[in-house]
Amino acid sequence: MSQFSFVEATDWQCAACNQPLEATKVQVTYLKSAFHVELMTCPKCGFTLIPEDLAVGKMLEVEQLLEDK
């Protein structure tokens, strides 16, 4: 997951900042591991979008792997 980009065009916009989301390199963590991934976030406040298919797909898979380490 560490090299992955999950960037895709999206209609979602940050309501608080009234901004479209932009591809950004961020770090997500779980248990004792950290991953650098590219996700859509709000350039102003940093709100990170995790789309449903990512949450119940790849992300879940990685979480499960880490849990058994």
């Binding site: 963590t29 779980y30 940093g46 949450a55």
Partner: peptide, 30 residues
């Protein structure tokens, strides 16, 4: 757990269209 909810305001309260969750921690929650 981070919970995500897709919804819209309706006359009385909110209509929920979808929900999902993950355990990974996003930058804003670290």
């Amino acid at each position: 757990v981070t919970y995500w909810v897709k919804y819209e305001p309706i006359e009385e309260g909110f209509l929920v269209h979808n929900g999902y969750s993950h355990r990974m921690i996003l930058p804003e929650d670290q």
